[in-house]
Amino acid sequence: MAETIEKKVVKKPSEPLLSKRRKKFVIDPLSDDNPITIQVLGICSALAVTTQLKPTLVMALSVTFVMIFSSLFISLLRNLIPTRVRIIVQLAIIASLVSLVNEVLHAYAFDVYKQLSVFVGLIITNCIVMGRLEAFAMGNKPYDSMLDAFGSAMGYSWIIIAVAFFRELLGSGKLFGFAVFDTIGWSTFPTNGLMVSPVGAFIILGLIIWVQRAKMGYVEQH
């Protein structure tokens, strides 16, 4: 993904490629302003695929791709899009990108495509994508918007990968389909069926949120 960004660099001598301001776009969503744990966005479609690491990784990559390019296009078109139909324009662009991802997965990663089934389509309604378009890409330059999208996508990705890591490890004793506990000779490891069921995702995510918020001292006001 980093290569794609560099290609689109707008030459601007006054500001370095990764100035402090721009670094903030990428770093902030990783922890301080994480889209999932702090902003409470985009939990929808992602958790259902986190039973195993492999589909989760593909999902994270797909979301990153869709976010970066939808931000780029929306930002390029931001002065042309009529305000009254902007939501539907955003949806149309996201939906096209997602369809593209879906077609490519269908052709070149059929196994994962079958596993993810409808959840690729549900990237369209992932609130993070829409949220960043509305909040950032509609009012900022293309390169900045892409950085911002990249940051949010990474913030989202590491959370779902962390959830998937624990769910696959504790639920089926594997990582990327590799039987970890069998290999280290602990073949009687009691796998927890609850971890692979939806319940496991809620609980793991709840705990990750707790740890993260406790670490940074963020308290939600009622």
């Binding site: 042309l80 009529p82 009254r84 539907i88 149309a92 662009i93 096209s96 490519v104």
Partner: peptide, 26 residues
């Protein structure tokens, strides 16, 4: 930005055609 209805319709049409065309190609 407030635009005329004609602009909105033309914009939507162009966008639909471009996106639809690209997707069909893919």
């Amino acid at each position: 930005m407030q635009r005329s209805n004609t602009y909105i319709i033309i914009f939507s049409l162009v966008l639909t055609i471009i996106l639809g065309g690209l997707l069909s190609l893919a």
